[in-house]
Amino acid sequence: MATDSALPSSVISRLRVRYAETDQMGVVYHANYLVWMEIGRTDYCRACGYAYRAMEAAGLRLVVAEARVRYLSPARYDDDIHLTTRLLALRSRQVVFGYDIRRATDDTLLATGETTHLPTNHAGRIIRLPADIHAALSTGPTGQAA
């Protein structure tokens, strides 16, 4: 497991709220925050040098075992969103990501979240995280300012 002092830096994903992501009140529908966290996770892994597609091609799936979102302020259509993704824990059979979602124009914290993932094989059996993927995530994002 990575300790707090050894955790790699974060990755920032930039998004713009699309009209289709809002409800009748003009507020981003709550489930879209989970979709955004998936974007952040994918960007984080890619920045570590291991794209999700490559993981899946190698037979690895990172299944979501738990997801948590705390909604603090609404995002609205056309807001410029900055999603910060960081690794919270890395174990042989578990990966935990943390997220902060902010409106870029005023830096308002809109939501925070966390997802816990279990590495599985193509048959859905929990496995140890392959050493090369563990090493890539342990090293953290490259070429990205924290």
Rank of each mutant, 00 (worst) to 15 (best):
M55S: 07
I39G: 02
D4N: 14
A136R: 13
A123G: 03
Q144H: 14
D43F: 04
A51H: 02
A57P: 01
H30I: 06
P130D: 12
L90W: 03
A2H: 06
D79T: 11
S9N: 07
S5N: 13
T84K: 12
G49V: 00
E56I: 03
L7R: 15
R53C: 05
A57N: 06
E114F: 06
L62I: 09
T42C: 05
V27E: 03
R68F: 12
S10Q: 10
S138N: 08
L62C: 13
A20Q: 14
R125Q: 06
T105R: 15
W36T: 07
T105N: 09
N32A: 12
A123M: 04
Y19N: 09
A6N: 14
N32M: 09
L60F: 06
R46S: 11
A58Q: 02
A57Y: 08
E21Y: 03
R16M: 10
S138F: 00
R46M: 11
A123H: 08
Y99K: 13
T84W: 02
L34N: 13
A123C: 01
I133A: 12
Y52I: 06
D43S: 02
A123E: 11
T108N: 03
M37Q: 08
A51P: 04
F97S: 07
Y19A: 01
G124Q: 02
V63P: 03
F97E: 11
I133G: 04
G113H: 08
T3Q: 12
I12S: 05
H117D: 00
R103W: 13
R68A: 09
V17A: 12
T108L: 10
H82W: 12
R125C: 01
Y19P: 02
Y77F: 12
I101F: 14
E114T: 14
T139D: 05
V95N: 00
H134Q: 09
P130I: 10
L62P: 08
A51R: 08
N32W: 13
Y71H: 12
Y50M: 10
A89L: 07
V95M: 00
D43T: 01
S9A: 12
P8E: 01
D78R: 10
M1V: 05
Q94T: 10
T112C: 09
